[in-house]
């Protein structure tokens, strides 16, 4: 552990300021709380929002897991883990069930989260109405007056153009029947996991200087229309070629040599855990 820095990199005052914003965010589900985003040793827009939340919350007994698009071992995830463990000395893990803090870029893990866990999502664009209304001043008013026709209008436009809602990720959700929220670019597949989640979900946008939250057991509904209901990505009839799992989020991969298309778990730690469970029984 590097003792040149204060515990968890930040000074105590900074951590307290971020935690205060976080408390307000939890008190008003889905509302974007501004906070003084700190300078970080990584560039803004590379997960600094999530990282600041992690650093402000982490304690000596926490166990940290960091994932990047479902992978524990990508460069971004590894570097964030290194920074946190170097300045705090806390243990890191790949196993979702063992972690108390999970920082994630654009996925919610396949293993259901428990009530003593906190999920921290990195957010590039926290404002769900930004494309509809460029002015922050105006979007604040729209949120204040619960005027969300713009959010539905963007979905309507997609239906007009492409015949269906085409949000690949970041499909807007209504939180606690009050605020429309950008769930960060998680696939539609993960949206339903936010609804009545046992774990606390925090979302941090470092570049845009906003923190927001979905407290445990909060109603989260994906926006849709009466005749165009919300549908998560479907992987019917498909399974992971490594562990054989079905009903999980799969990556589509193409073997360029043989032109063969195959599917594989996006959540790598889930895939390995499933493989380790299966093999001792000699099924494979």
């Amino acid at each position: 552990m590097n003792t040149a820095y204060n515990f968890a990199f930040f000074d105590e005052g900074s951590k307290r300021e971020i935690r205060r914003a976080t408390l307000k965010a939890i008190a008003i589900p889905g509302y974007q709380v501004p906070f003084a985003s700190r300078e970080m040793p990584i560039g803004r827009g590379w997960g600094t929002g999530g990282l600041q939340l992690t650093l402000s919350l982490i304690g000596k007994n926490d166990v940290l897991k960091v994932i990047d698009q479902g992978s524990d071992e990508s460069v971004n995830a590894v570097n964030i883990k290194k920074l946190v463990s170097d300045t705090t000395g806390v243990a890191t893990t790949d196993h979702t069930a063992e972690a108390s803090l999970i920082q994630s870029r654009h996925r919610i893990p396949e293993v259901p989260l428990k009530k003593d866990q906190i999920l921290i999502l990195q957010v590039p664009l926290p404002e769900p109405l930004r494309y509809y209304e460029p002015s922050e001043n105006e979007t604040k008013k729209l949120h204040g007056e619960k005027e969300y026709s713009g959010a539905w209008l963007m979905l309507f436009e997609q239906i007009m153009k492409y015949g269906s809602m085409t949000t690949g990720a970041d499909h807007p959700v209504m939180v606690h029947d009050r605020y429309v929220m950008a769930p960060s670019p998680i696939p539609r597949f993960d949206n339903p996991k936010m609804n009545e989640s046992e774990a606390l979900i925090l979302l941090g946008a470092g570049r845009e200087k906003k923190v927001y939250a979905v407290p445990p057991y909060t109603k989260v509904v994906s926006l849709d229309f009466e005749d165009y209901p919300f549908e998560p990505e479907s992987f019917e009839d498909k399974h992971c070629r490594l562990c054989g799992s079905t009903g999980v989020f799969l990556d589509e991969l193409v073997d360029e040599a043989t032109d063969e298309t195959f599917y594989q778990c996006n959540d790598t730690s889930y895939c390995i855990e499933t493989l380790n469970e299966v093999e001792p029984f000699g099924v494979k």
């Binding site: 309507f156 229309f225 009466e226």
Partner: peptide
């Protein structure tokens, strides 16, 4: 549609 949605319409068709 923007005005229709704002008036509470939820049916694309």
């Amino acid at each position: 549609a923007e005005k229709l949605i704002a008036a509470g319409n939820q049916h694309v068709g």
